[in-house]
């Protein structure tokens, strides 16, 4: 029974990990996977790949890949902090690059949504190879909750044309 429960939990966890990025074509295109999840926290990784190189002389991965990994992990951490699934939108993301990634090594990342308000989620992230205490980059980001598909256009049409059909 305990084994069954553990197996069921593992299966649910696996499904959740897949659900976080399976529908994100850009994450799949760079080989991103979810390593682990916890309430408000996500661990993601991108395996080293020659197509992600930003400096052909050194083989160092492009900063943009680190941005993508931190952005995606931060968004996942917010989803994992929310009581129910809702649309979120990144407001801003600041990334500090501490050192270049080592060529040939996989990129790991941990993001933690440490504060939720009614409208905003606050997230910290760190990218590393093996040890989060030896970071390649760190990030801070804010996310808008219940982001409403950014459908501003109908509102503007209302303003320009009035609310009633002509």
């Amino acid at each position: 029974m305990t084994d069954n429960k553990a197996a069921a939990r593992n299966l649910a966890l696996m499904r959740m990990k897949e659900a976080l990025i399976e529908h994100v074509p850009h994450a799949r295109a760079i080989g991103m996977t979810v390593v682990d999840v916890r309430r408000g926290q996500a661990w993601l990784m991108v395996p080293y790949d020659a197509k992600l190189v930003g400096n052909p002389d050194t083989g160092v991965i492009h900063g943009g890949v680190i941005t993508t990994l931190l952005d995606n992990a931060s968004g996942a951490a917010v989803q994992l902090a929310l009581p129910e699934r809702q649309a979120i939108a990144t407001l801003d993301l600041r990334i500090d690059y501490m050192k270049p990634a080592t060529p040939g090594e996989d990129l790991h990342c941990h993001a933690h949504c440490y504060k939720l308000t009614r409208n905003i989620a606050f997230v910290r992230g760190v990218a590393y190879h093996k040890d989060p205490a030896d970071p390649i980059a760190t990030s801070v980001g804010t996310f808008m909750l219940a982001a409403n598909r950014a459908e501003v256009m109908p509102v503007e049409i209302d303003k320009i044309l009035g609310k009633e059909a002509q």
Partner: peptide, 14 residues
């Protein structure tokens, strides 16, 4: 985000 659809924030950052 395929449901909007929208470009990935990371790709825009890059």
């Amino acid at each position: 985000n395929p449901s909007l659809p929208a470009l990935h924030g990371g790709a825009i950052g890059a």
